[in-house]
Design a protein around this nucleic acid. Structure first.
Length: 468
RNA sequence: GGCGCCGUGGCCAAGUGGUAAGGCACAGGUCUGCAACACCUCCAUCACCGGAUCAAAUCCGGUCGGCGCCUCCA
């Protein structure tokens, strides 16, 4: 299977460090507000990557952090006369709600920066000892010039960066050069603080990921992922920190997702043109949002709009209908034994699975993978009209469920439905009315069901129902 | 200025050398008491110009247009 590696700017064969295992780290959000649809993209995309690895039989260790100490959280806490912890706790909880809604599996570990301070201090000490960092008046800076390979991920030239930065960034006098970045910042009133060898203070942004990745996954990991805006400086700095500290390669593969745009412009909190997942979820089911995100290749930008969500909703409905139809067919099918001529059809079904895998093997091409699902759906819909056997239908449903589970869409929720009996009774009543050609009564009952949020469909085998 | 991405039907989106997948929407039709579902049919020469090739949406050069990173940001 091939993955596009930002480090080499090429698709490469994926070879795990340890056979059968994948260690991946995905940068998580800073929790000062609800997550927005842009945050949702890496959540969904890399969750799907993880699911596919698991589908292929890998044992995946997935780490996604929460940045719970940051200027913006502190600011928010001050505005709300609250504390940084309280704000972070609240939005971590809310982020989980959205992630759960989006059917994003929980990471193996969700570390929080504030629980990792000792590890952070340790790594900073190491960097100072090895000559990659220096302290000035309580601030510890990373010395970018000391790391020869600085710029290797973003393909930037350090000297040019320095030249460019000098023109536009007002130089912080304490830094030895403008591209040096903060590892530890000194305490300021109104901010949280931890004791350290350099005085009380708090960690800079970049060091946390290096520390958490090392702690939970080891010095060298298979995959490090995040949004493409993190390539520089965040991921570049992580490499500088981790590789300088350990003397080993940090991550073998770097995966970056493209942006979600609005009117073809980057959606960002700072630009003010963003939508929270919560807002969209009020109008569309979460799974539609997930499906929408997977409808394009993860490295391409996707333009967000209501029209596209509606299209996604309709497309997803098609897949779900097929599942419902299959389930209903299986329950009511009279042909219990597989027919000889169905062997070839089983092969066809398997062909769609192979098509799906081929797409996913090619750098997680979910758009093509979804096409394989649609083609399976089409095939099944046609065959279902031909009085196929129950085993065939079961096999088709199994495959469809399998592929959907990799994408995390159209999955059956375990629903305990106490109203089922009432609904079935109404449907039976309607069938009776239909039998008597009392269509007015039949329609009245359908309306009643509709008011209950139940949609019905008359099929050859009888009346099917589903909740909206 | 440096680095990088993109431009495929009304909309979305694969395809990166061998003659345009798929979905949504639209239109017509089949099925059906109606509706819904489903099925069938219909719908593009790939921004533009030039080049190498038997052959290009796919390679090379150029033009135009859109976007991103270089500053907190998924």
């Amino acid at each position: 299977m091939k993955v596009y590696n930002t480090l080499t700017r090429k698709k490469e064969e994926f070879i795990p460090l340890e056979e059968g295992k994948v260690k991946m780290y995905v940068c998580g959000p800073t929790v000062y507000s609800y997550i927005h649809i842009g945050n949702a993209r890496p959540y969904v995309v890399f969750d799907t990557v993880r699911r596919y690895f698991e589908y292929k039989g890998y044992d995946v260790t997935y780490v996604q952090n929460f940045t719970d100490v940051d200027d913006k959280i502190i600011k928010r806490a001050n505005e709300e006369h609250s504390t940084m912890d309280a704000v972070a706790n609240k939005y971590i909880e809310e982020a989980f709600k959205d992630a759960d809604g989006l059917n994003v599996k929980r990471a193996t570990v969700h570390p929080r920066v504030t629980n990792e301070i000792s590890g952070i201090i340790e790594m900073i000490k190491t960097l100072i000892d090895k000559g990659y960092a220096y302290e000035k008046e309580g601030t510890v800076y990373y010395n970018t010039k000391a790391f020869k390979e600085y710029g290797k991920l973003s393909k930037k030239n350090l000297d040019e960066l320095i030249a460019g930065a000098s023109e536009r960034v007002s130089l912080d006098d304490l830094k030895e050069n403008p591209m040096d970045f903060v590892l530890w910042k000194p305490f300021k009133p109104g901010e949280p603080k931890w004791p350290s060898p350099w005085g009380e203070g708090r960690p800079g942004w970049h060091i946390e990921c290096s520390v958490m990745s090392k702690k939970y996954l080891g010095e060298t990991i298979d995959i490090h992922a995040g949004g493409e805006d993190l390539i520089f400086p965040h991921h570049e700095n992580e490499i500088a920190q981790s590789e300088a500290a350990s003397g080993k390669p940090f991550a073998k593969y770097w995966l970056h997702n493209g942006f979600i745009t609005v009117n073809n412009e980057k959606m960002a909190k700072s630009a003010g043109n963003f939508f929270t997942v919560r807002e969209i979820a009020a109008e569309f089911p979460y799974e539609v949002i997930r499906f929408f995100i997977l409808s394009g290749h993860y490295r391409n930008p996707i333009n967000f709009s209501r029209e596209l969500l509606i299209a996604s909703q309709n497309g997803l409905e098609r897949i779900k209908n097929c599942k419902e139809n299959l389930k209903y067919y299986i329950e009511n099918c009279e042909v219990k034994d597989i027919k000889p001529e169905e062997a070839a059809m089983m092969d066809e079904i398997n062909g769609f699975k192979l098509q799906f895998e081929k797409a996913m093997d090619d750098d997680f091409n979910t758009a093509d993978a979804i096409t394989a699902v649609y083609e399976l759906v089409k095939y099944v819909n046609v065959k279902l009209k031909e009085n196929v056997s129950k085993p065939f239908a079961e096999s088709a449903l199994y495959t469809l469920n399998l592929l959907c589970s990799v994408l995390g869409i159209a999955e059956d929720k375990a629903e305990a439905d106490g109203d089922a009996k009432i609904i079935e009774a109404l449907i039976a009543k309607r069938a009776k009315a239909k039998g008597n050609k009392d269509f007015a009564e039949a329609d009245r009952i359908r309306g009643e069901l509709s008011d209950m949020g139940v949609t019905i469909k008359d099929t050859r085998q009888g009346t099917q129902w589903s909740r909206n």
